[in-house]
């Protein structure tokens, strides 16, 4: 199935922030990221402001896509949770509905068990938010005459003027 365009407004981001801020604290994580399955960063929180988050989002989506392919080879629909354990930092990824990925980066101040517990609850909350956004996008439908419906060729050409 082709997916519809994904449009998010300020309120959607705030709703996500209200889930990931407590998750960061309760999981004693270094950083929490919400990424979409196509590889766009949606929201983040934590102490990792120097990280290349664009790359993180793209690689996370690639990793989840590849692992999903493996799951299907084995007859599983998908592997809903992925853990990558490093010497200092570790990554915990949880699939959120069909749309998002919740990424928690943690170190020795936390534990896999704690992160897993907290991420499970947060991913359920995020799935509800994503579902609401999806329904809103579908209800609005394509060609609803908003911001980009009447952009002109000149406006597009101006983007490419050297």
């Amino acid at each position: 199935m082709s997916e519809s365009q994904f449009v998010m407004h300020e309120g959607d981001f705030l709703a996500i922030q209200k889930v990931i801020d407590p998750l960061l604290k309760n999981a004693r994580a270094r950083g929490v990221f919400v990424v979409d399955r196509v590889g766009q960063l949606i929201r983040q929180t934590g102490e990792m402001s120097n990280l290349d988050t664009t790359s993180l989002a793209s690689l996370t989506a690639g990793c989840v896509a590849a692992t999903g392919g493996l799951a299907q080879l084995l007859g599983e629909e998908e592997f809903p949770t992925h853990v990558h354990q490093g010497e200092r930092d570790s990554l915990h990824m949880t699939l959120v509905g069909g749309r998002g990925i919740l990424v928690v980066v943690f170190d020795q101040r936390s534990s896999l068990g704690l992160v897993r517990l907290r991420a499970r609850k947060a991913s359920t909350q995020l799935a509800t938010i994503f579902e609401a956004i999806k329904k809103k996008c579908e209800a609005e439908g394509p060609g609803n005459g908003k911001t980009f419906a009447d952009i002109s060729d000149d406006e597009i050409d101006n983007l490419f003027s050297d």
Binding site: G143, N144, K146, F148, A149, I151, D153, D157, L159, F160
Partner: peptide, 17 residues
């Protein structure tokens, strides 16, 4: 690249957003 990006942006007109 420019032609492709133009095509993608022109496509936004169809979906509106």
């Amino acid at each position: 690249l420019k032609a492709t990006a133009k095509g993608v942006l022109s496509d936004l007109r169809k979906v509106g957003a």
